[in-house]
Simulated assay, not measured.
Amino acid sequence: MGAGHDHGSHGHNHGPGHVHGSANQRRLGIAALITAVFMVAEAIGGVLTGSLALVADAAHMFTDAVSLGFAWWAFRLAGADPTEKRTFGNRRLPVLVAFANAIAIFMITAFILIEAAERFQEPVTVLAGPMLVVAVAGLIANIVSFLVLMGGHKESLNVRGALIHVAGDLLGSIAAIVAAGVILATGWMPIDPILSVLVGLLILRSAIKLCRESGHILLEGTPAGLEPGRVRTVLEGHIEGVAAVRHVHVWALDENRPLITLNVVLEDDADGFRTIAAVKARIKSELGVDHTTVEIDPPDIGHGAQAPRGAAT
């Protein structure tokens, strides 16, 4: 009667959620393929025309192609059955991929900014006509990818994240078109590195957010709205038989799967099994968490140092 463990909906469900996952996987695959093809086209066009704006947009499209590809791959692997070595399966794989993608974006952004600084000092002649053609083709590709993803299941963070990336690509293509137009109209070459810097900063902003959110999960940070104090407030005084709630730990397996462990002290003559069930039911109804581990503490255990998480599982 010492501990109760609830896997809730961790069973293998192949109903509507599985259907949405398959559709989203297909949409991500199409968007990744389109982005990758036009990333190559823009990179070649940037080199041939001398346009840093095109190279910057190609770099942005590269990170997005990788992100979309890994998101597609993660959909394939995330549903794998748990094993003895991976009791949660591959549920955290998309988070790890997101963190690695953020690091790659930092490196590419640094390259763009350094190259732009060099071009401010030594301007490079840009072939604005071919640059405009390539930029327009890239814009069309980004619009197609955006429309493909718009039809995805909006509850999927993978799909919403992909939409944000493709929207960034749209802005990058627009920046390249504007740069080509300005050069054609005025011959003013500095517009190319100026707009490439703006695209680089756009990428950097997205990378910082991606790194912060994925790193928080990897470090087992507390999900927003599930702070231990709130968990105690939801339980204490609301569950018959619970005298105190201690050692609350909250973290997340991925963006959608929070987990809670906690210890409770029972009131005299309380039924342990019934109380554990009531604690889990209230956490699920009030906080939406369906994976909770509850351990019963004897009343004479002090309120001192927090027990390690392993003690509550």
Rank of each mutant, 00 (worst) to 15 (best):
R232S: 09
R246V: 01
G11R: 10
V134L: 06
M39L: 01
D269S: 11
T49P: 03
G129H: 10
G288Q: 00
G151F: 14
P82G: 13
F75G: 05
E255F: 13
I194N: 07
V126M: 05
G79N: 00
V279D: 07
G168C: 05
V66R: 08
V55N: 08
V95M: 15
N90Q: 15
M150V: 11
V47Q: 09
E267D: 02
W73M: 14
E255C: 10
D6I: 08
V133W: 06
A162P: 00
V66H: 08
R26L: 06
G129E: 11
D290N: 10
F106N: 00
L157P: 12
R26W: 03
V242M: 05
N263E: 14
G302S: 12
R76D: 04
A36V: 09
L287Q: 12
G221I: 01
V234M: 04
V264T: 01
A207G: 02
E227P: 03
D6F: 11
E213M: 07
R26Y: 03
R91F: 01
I34T: 07
R76I: 03
L96D: 03
G237Y: 03
L163N: 09
A32W: 05
E267S: 11
N263P: 11
L96R: 03
L28W: 01
R160N: 14
T35R: 05
A270N: 10
G200V: 02
I143P: 09
G172V: 02
E155Q: 11
